[in-house]
């Protein structure tokens, strides 16, 4: 195999349920759709989800713990995506816990993966304990996912602090699940509020979109269909990772509720 020396990107947040796994699946798939070879690593040992979101659960034979413990070869642990030839998944183990992998093992694994892939997306578990520590161990870039809630932003702030202390200074912010109607009314933090607190570069904003729920349940990342707003937003972020300059998606107009549109028609404003 030729020496690729790919880039390892960890997707992390501190807080749970803000969309790390959804982001990992969509960015990984998006990059593969753009012609890159990608492996998505599920680092959430004991609570694996990424395989379900990708629709690859039934293909798992070996997992990340088998690979780092060398009970199987790296190639045996990788699952090829059913839609894209250059996209692979390394699933987490379900019957083990976070103590099964050490940061040094993760660095070795990521280095090995870098020889074969352009991008390695690491889906970190929530929290800042062991699982988080080994997830960030081999990463070159961190994408910090947050939602427009004060609790998620606080956790993101904490995580950025830890990343900097660990020497990972290359990080970008992804604001997930924003609702333009609520922002407009002043009920939700807007982009500026969050950027003010966290003071790191923004890589994208993903609107709250029920398509995500549908696509997650189908095991098909939203970026594939590409018609949903969230899917488009994720594709733009994938392009930005490749260095393209793309304007932030104008989510305000598209996402205006149907009901409010009808109201406007009837009442004139």
């Amino acid at each position: 195999m030729e020496n690729k020396k790919g880039t390892a990107i960890v997707v992390t947040s501190g807080k749970g349920g803000v969309g790390k796994t959804t982001t990992s699946a969509n960015l990984g798939t998006g990059l593969a759709m753009l012609g890159k070879s990608v492996v998505i690593v599920d680092a959430d040992i004991g609570l694996r989800n990424l395989d379900v979101v990708m629709g690859l659960e039934n293909r798992i034979v070996y997992d990340i713990v088998d690979v780092v413990e060398k009970t199987c070869r790296l190639k045996q642990g990788l699952i090829r995506d059913k839609r894209f030839e250059k996209l692979y998944l390394l699933p987490a183990a379900q019957t083990r816990d976070k103590s099964a992998v050490k940061p040094e093992q993760m660095i070795e694994l990521v280095n090995e993966l870098k020889d074969e892939f352009d991008y390695i997306i690491i889906d970190s578990p929530a929290g800042i304990e062991q699982g988080f520590q080994y997830s960030i161990a081999g990463a070159d870039l961190a994408i910090i996912v947050t939602t427009p809630e004060i609790s998620a932003v606080r956790d993101a702030d904490r995580v950025i602090g830890i990343l900097e202390a660990k020497g990972l200074h290359d990080h970008r912010l992804l604001i997930n699940r924003i609702r333009p109607d609520m922002v407009k009314k002043g009920d939700m933090m807007n982009r500026e509020d969050i950027e003010d607190i966290l003071a790191i570069d923004l890589i994208g904003i993903v609107p709250d979109d029920e398509e995500i729920v549908i696509s997650t349940n189908k095991g098909e990342p939203a970026v594939i269909e590409g018609r949903s707003l969230a899917g488009k937003a994720y594709m733009n972020i994938a392009k930005r990772i490749l260095g393209e300059e793309i304007e932030l998606l104008d989510i305000e107009d598209d996402n205006e509720g149907k009901i409010s549109k009808i109201f406007k028609l009837i009442f004139g404003k």
């Binding site: 629709g55 659960e57 039934n58 293909r59 798992i60 034979v61 059913k82």
Partner: peptide, 15 residues
Amino acid sequence: PNQLRIADIIVRAPD
């Protein structure tokens, strides 16, 4: 099942 294994044969559920 997601996957069935008997002896050393592994099959998975169809997509």
